[in-house]
Nucleic acid binder design. Structure first.
Lengths: 197, 197
DNA sequence: GTCGATACGGACCGCCGGTCCGCTTCCCGT
DNA sequence: ACGGGAAGCGGACCGGCGGTCCGTATCGAC
């Protein structure tokens, strides 16, 4: 009763679809002009198979992101410093946001597709929830910093995919420009208030 | 030849459409299930009139936002302090972001529709450009603050409509919670570094 | 090899943004 | 006051998309 193992061809198809979707999103400028039919064709399967395996368009994109993001999540959850637990909180916040920014740079098309699903708010995903909780908990360990919940949202907003995309494409910022800018921003946010002596 | 004045009925219809769209967006939870046909019907005009007057869906939403936002923009461009010019920069940054947040709270449905047009990035609008330039220029006047451009983006990201919507709807934050949280965040970002004595 | 369960695939559907063109309404010159 | 041409109107129409459905092909346990 726990679960029935899926058929071999179903598994093969699932992988083919994910690979095809990844490729197509990477090739096209705008995620929304990759249609479901395109993905099915590129994967060599029928449209029915897509929807059987992933429910709907959002589900497919979600599954794809989840798959690509998994290594990073693991590294954060129980990897070595500076990403993993056991790192001093200020340093870890820097590491988390830098890693997230780099992920969005390396998978711009994917992140853009995820956040731009249109119908669903990007805030109503497990994915966002996980990052928010993680970041909030680390922020809460920093003495003197109040409002960890809101601060976590505000910091995560600074690395949203469409903003990153805009900065790279329109304002021609390089990867290092962005990382430096974000690091400076994070530093300002976390800076300790001048306490009395 | 500069421009021919539009016909009276065209003007009437334009207003009717804007009013109808505003109402419909306010009523429906999700902006994307207000269709163009709905708006046309509610305004008592044909679909053709919609597209003749506003080019496409994005254009209609843009025009609507522009109209509602105009008073605030004027107040910022040449109104009295604390929004208008001549205000000390740190105070003005606070005022700008607070005003923008309040606008998004008061016109959630509209802002949501604007940013969630789906196809077009919210960053590729005159509207965003104007806010970014304005905020950046004020930030640039603050001594010791580097990277005004990026900081402006990061601060604006903290008041994005879908985030605000999420905080209100899902995390049940009140208007004052939000304003206080944002104010604290802005304070942290603008806080002067510990300079020598 | 057999047979039930599982998955496949593409024709099909409803809906939506956007176009088109015959008809109506306005408004300016006389 | 009025006539004519330009500006505007509206809704039938189109192409394409996400999503469904079910007859058929495939898998794999025995």
């Amino acid at each position: 009763m726990p679960e029935r193992k899926p058929r071999a061809d179903a598994l093969r198809n699932r992988e083919a679809v994910l690979a095809a979707a990844d490729r197509l999103f990477a090739e096209c400028a705008r995620p929304e002009d990759v249609t479901m039919a395109d993905i099915a064709a590129a994967a060599g399967v029928g449209k029915g198979t897509l929807f059987r395996g992933f429910t709907d368009r959002t589900g497919l994109i979600l599954a794809l992101c989840e798959a690509r993001l998994d290594p990073l999540r693991r590294a954060v959850a129980d990897g070595p410093p500076p990403l993993g637990p056991g790192t001093p909180p200020v340093e870890r916040v820097h590491a988390l946001l830098d890693a997230l920014l780099c992920f969005k740079l390396d998978h711009r098309h994917l992140s853009l597709a995820l956040e731009g699903t249109g119908s669903d708010s990007p805030y109503r995903t497990d994915h966002y929830d996980w990052w928010h909780r993680t970041l909030r908990d680390v922020l809460a360990e920093i003495p003197g910093l109040t409002g960890a919940g809101f601060t976590a949202h505000a910091l995560l907003a600074a690395v949203r995919a469409d903003l990153v995309d805009h900065l790279v494409d329109r304002e021609h910022m390089t990867r290092e420009d962005l990382r430096a800018g974000l690091a400076a921003h994070v530093t300002r946010v976390l800076r300790e208030p001048d306490a009395g002596p």
